[in-house]
């Protein structure tokens, strides 16, 4: 079980929650279960969400494991110049 913090707007889409507990071993499973448990998040996940694990931001490595006790923070997927 990992605790996942959602940024403000994403929390609104999750029914007003800014933290959720999810049983997930990696980013792929995290997104799948988030979409199952909070359908309002699905379009956001489809558009792209980045995952910060202990401060390191992962945008595409969906196989990245979520260590127990790690700080998991969801962020918008960014554009760059």
């Amino acid at each position: 079980m990992v605790e996942v913090t959602l940024w403000g707007s994403l929390g609104t889409a999750a029914g007003g929650k800014n933290k959720v507990d999810i049983e997930a071993k990696d980013i792929r499973e995290l997104f799948r279960k988030l979409a199952e448990q909070y359908p309002g998040l699905e379009p956001w996940i489809d558009r792209g969400i980045a995952v910060s694990i202990d401060g390191v931001i992962y945008r595409d490595t969906w196989s990245k494991e979520l260590p127990q006790g790690a700080e998991i923070f969801l962020l918008p997927r960014l554009a760059g110049g």
Partner: peptide, 14 residues
């Protein structure tokens, strides 16, 4: 901000 600070956008800095 420094290492360990919670950033204003969420995650804690390395």
């Amino acid at each position: 901000a420094q290492e360990g600070t919670r950033s204003s956008y969420g995650p804690v800095y390395g």
